[in-house]
Amino acid sequence: MGAQDFRTLYERLRRAARSGPDGGRRGALRHLTPARVAAAAAGVRLGRTVSLAAPIETRPGPDNPEPAKHRMTGPAPGEAGADGLHFALDRFAMNVHGDADSHLDALNHVLYDGELYDGVPAGDATAPEVRSLSVDLVGEGIVGRGVLLDVPRLRGVPWVEPGDHVTADDLTAAEAAQGVRVGPGDLLLVRVGHRRRRRELGAWDAARSRAGLHPRALAFLAEREVAVLGGDGNNDTAPSAVAGVAFPVHVLAVQAMGVHLMDYLQLEDLAGACARAGRWSFLCVVAPLRLPGATGSPVNPIAVL
């Protein structure tokens, strides 16, 4: 995709995101109304819950040079077998925006041309208008209708190969094949099979090579008024389809459209559950940590079928 074509698409999606009568700092979450949340809850049929998160990685690997650090800090030596009350304790630290662990990107995560979403200047991370776009914005959680579009299932392959793009045509074809339609306020999850490939072939340097959405596919999200986008990879393809813009999908989704992203989810269990149930929509509950001013959070989304 040429630089000018990308700029044209960027400006178009940015204008559309700002033109709605109910726009503002909530971004695409404005499409997720209380009525749509209630409708999503009413759609639960089986009462089965499925986690969409991968276990947090604590060992280094090709895609995870800075793994999360977890250690037991208690009980103190000699306390475990001693009489009386004692506690097991933990300490945990992680690089939220790595290439292995499931996480959510807030609207203050992506800077482009010196701005964040909604034209907010990106200079002062502590400024009130910048903090208003942080993960605080979703501190009450995101709950709505989730829809899984399974692109490897559509193509008849175990996974989409690294470097390959998911197009808008793939998304509409997956809808037709699965008998589901993405609509306003939906949490759209796109499976490319990243986790299955990693499990079967081993980890690789996903920063250099991974499957993801083509930038033009973001027009599909805008037309359908999607509230949240999640994927089992980074959502962006590597190498990038746009010279000079390493993460065009992040730029379009987060910075231009105000769409919260969830990266590196684990969608294999959900794909199997949906196939067995014969339905590809479900209640989806996303509960980020309450980290004041943060650009993202580890996350364990739950699908309820």
Rank of each mutant, 00 (worst) to 15 (best):
Q266F: 08
R208T: 06
V254I: 14
M1R: 05
D118L: 12
V190W: 05
A253G: 03
A38P: 03
T8Q: 15
L29G: 10
A93H: 06
R210W: 08
A82H: 09
A16R: 13
A203H: 14
S132A: 15
A68L: 11
G47E: 12
G278E: 11
A227C: 10
V44R: 14
G244R: 06
L32K: 03
A271C: 02
A206Y: 06
G98A: 13
A54Y: 02
L267V: 00
G258T: 05
G84Q: 12
R145Q: 06
G123T: 09
E225V: 02
A168E: 15
E223C: 01
E140D: 15
H165M: 06
V304N: 07
R290A: 13
D83C: 07
F92N: 02
G61E: 13
G156S: 07
Y10R: 14
V50E: 15
V286W: 09
D205E: 14
I142F: 09
P292D: 11
A227R: 05
L252I: 04
A28F: 05
S209W: 14
D99Q: 10
E200S: 03
T33P: 05
P75W: 11
T167E: 15
G24D: 07
V160E: 09
A243C: 01
L201Y: 09
V285Q: 04
D105V: 01
G141H: 10
A16Y: 00
A207M: 12
A243W: 08
V254M: 10
S134A: 12
D269S: 10
N300M: 12
R48Q: 15
E66C: 06
N64H: 11
A227V: 07
G146E: 05
V130M: 07
W280E: 00
G272K: 07
D124E: 14
D99A: 12
A222E: 13
T172H: 10
A256N: 08
R195I: 00
R59C: 03
T295A: 15
V299M: 04
G258P: 10
A125L: 14
P75N: 09
L13P: 06
Y117I: 00
T172Y: 12
A177L: 08
S240K: 11
C274V: 15
F6R: 07
L261R: 04
A271M: 02
P152L: 02
D118P: 00
R279E: 14
A294C: 06
G183N: 01
V44C: 10
G47R: 10
G272S: 08
G244K: 09
Y117S: 02
Y112A: 09
G258K: 07
Y117F: 15
A16M: 10
A100Y: 09
A275F: 07
R36H: 12
G119H: 04
A173Q: 10
A53T: 02
R14G: 01
R59W: 11
S102A: 15
G43K: 09
A273E: 11
Q178C: 01
F282N: 00
